[in-house]
Design a protein around this nucleic acid. Structure first.
Lengths: 354, 354
DNA sequence: TTGAAAGCGCTAACAC
DNA sequence: GTGTTAGCGCTTTCAA
């Protein structure tokens, strides 16, 4: 038998030491090492001390993958599917989830769906392949039944920000319709009658629902909806800038805008700024610097960290007791009035050839 | 023998089906299933088709943890340690890394160190325990020798944004000193002589280095450094607001500020806004809305996505060829002049009792 | 083209 | 207190 490795001194170069190595060097069984490593007790002071010493000398690191492999379907990782990690909104959410996870010794695999249902599906597959104990999803899909099979097999899934469809799961959402209605009513109260909307694609739940709130507000005030004022399909902030320009270029441009998420708001503000147009605006999602802009931007405020935290709480509760009926939590949101809804001069249509 | 499970029909409720289940149902060996699952070829059309069919019927999902367990020290995950996921700066970085990782079928475990060296150390341990194939670290520590042992054993580590110390690793950094010097020189050129600094704690590399740039700029212009003007230790944007107020409350307040990261900038702007003070400002790190503020904020621009992307490139190169000497990449940065460095009225000391 | 057997590093059940 | 045995689900020789 070739024992080249054994003879390599206390600090082998290549292979990482395993419990077996520690056990052999200590002249104990691997199980005893396991007990010490996991602080399970049931070992004598002496043995424990000797093992700990050897662990230190050897630079032994436990292999969590191997241990996770034993606890089937319940690794020490949870998966998060969001739209885009670089969006601070989701960043705050992930941060909150990460904190909750850490309290339980778990780590977070987060992935960006890019608002693409197909991609979301693939990412979920890969997360499941890595045996995540549970999943928190901001779904980009209008049909989550692709999860049904795994859920039936015991996978815990929590939907955040947007509800599930086609499966029964815990969820944390906002009252998007009510919040949007309030936002638009705020503009109406300030005398605006032509209110433009800049929103993401209609198949995105939040975009659809928030436009729905806009519709309801107009209807409640007996104002006919002008389809030309509703620009859906702006995904990036650049898209939103373009959409806003288009709105302001209308023969009868809006005097106010309702923007349905932080990117739409950013894009619209940039467009307004670029043409020095005087347009009122209320945006969905608060953002840093909203209060420092001129005028300060009135927004539908809500707390993405709370969204993440509650989603994590639901998930961990579900992991401990999988037989409760699904819960739905609606987190608070409210209009944060800062001044940007004030009536302003309608922008002039751009002078031809100027 | 109790065979309750076997008799549960083609879609068992509890346990997830494994390769073994597929193999048994197909009457082939587990290895053949493995070959088909991994697209290795070497199986007949017929067998493959039958296996695929069974996989589908059973809802079999490969267990990546188990497969990763075999490829020792090279799982399909990489770890990222940053300061805080919710900071958009790191969000962009992570996003870029995630994209690169995905191209290679890898996923990202990202964790927040909260700028705490102790915590960073623990998080790295836990990432290693989960057998990450490699690590990208924005280190909060001034001594990374805790990694030496693992690196010697073959762990690939790339340092991003801040260099390593105590270990030899690939790194992607900025020329912080030069960039900061330019920023401060820009302020000097606009006639400012009393320039305040709002920075994170001195033990944070970027804070230290950027203050160093400030010092060098003053020195080059023969201006004595007034220690009262240098406020280090602001971690959150709230801290920075407080520090800025303190600076502006000085008997001889600064006429300009240099803020050394995006949170310092945000905090300082809020303080300035709050007291309607007229203070020039140049900030390190670009941020959304910098161009929409009044005045638009001049910043040291650089690309956090590029930082992430290059760090990922270095890491994957290292994973493929671990014997190259460590590389150091300096990514570009430049002053993005927007107007906020213009000389302004020195703020009045606050009237007592007003 | 296929399979048997060994084992990745660890844990659980049950001895002693 | 401690060890033995049998696996978690998969891959990897090596043989057929």
């Amino acid at each position: 038998m070739s024992n080249a490795e054994e003879a390599d001194g206390p600090r082998p170069r290549g292979r990482r030491p395993t419990m077996k190595d520690v056990a052999e060097l200590c002249g104990v069984s691997i199980k005893t090492v396991s007990r010490v490593v996991n602080g399970q007790g049931g070992t004598s002071q002496e043995t424990a001390a000797r093992i700990l010493q050897t662990i230190d000398e050897l630079g032994f690191r436990p292999n969590r993958l191997a241990s996770d492999l034993r606890h089937i379907g319940a690794s020490s990782m949870i998966g998060i599917v969001i739209e885009d990690v670089s969006n601070p909104f989701y960043g705050s959410m992930i941060r909150a989830i990460e904190q909750r996870a850490r309290e339980r010794g778990m780590m977070v695999l987060s992935v960006s769906s890019e608002e693409d249902p197909q991609r979301e599906h693939e990412l979920v597959r890969e997360l499941i392949a890595r045996q995540v104990a549970g999943l928190i999803i901001v779904t980009a899909s209008s049909d989550n039944s692709y999860l049904a099979e795994d859920i039936r097999r015991g996978l815990s899934v929590v939907f955040a920000d947007r509800p599930s469809s086609g499966v029964q799961c815990d969820e944390v959402v906002l009252d998007d319709v009510r919040a949007s209605r309030e936002a638009v009513e705020h503009l109406l109260r300030h005398g605006h009658r032509r209110i433009g909307v800049v929103a993401d694609a209609d198949h995105v739940y939040t975009a659809h629902t928030r436009v729905q709130g806009y519709r309801e507000a107009l209807e409640a005030h007996g104002i006919a909806l002008d389809p030309a004022l509703v620009r859906q399909g702006s995904h990036t902030s650049e898209d939103a800038t373009e959409a806003t320009h288009a709105l302001l270029d209308l023969p009868e441009p809006p005097t106010a805008l309702f923007t349905t998420n932080n990117r739409s708001t950013a894009g619209a503000l940039r467009a307004i700024h670029g043409r020095d147009a005087q347009v009122a605006l209320v945006g969905f999602d608060d953002f840093e610097f909203a209060d420092l802009l001129n005028p300060p931007v009135t927004v539908v405020w809500h707390d993405p960290a709370a969204l993440g935290q509650l989603a994590a709480d639901l998930l961990f509760a579900r992991l401990e007791n999988s037989h409760e009926p699904p819960r739905r939590i609606v987190i608070p949101s409210r209009l944060l009035v800062r001044g940007s809804a004030l009536p302003r001069l309608a922008p002039n249509p751009p002078a031809a050839g100027a």
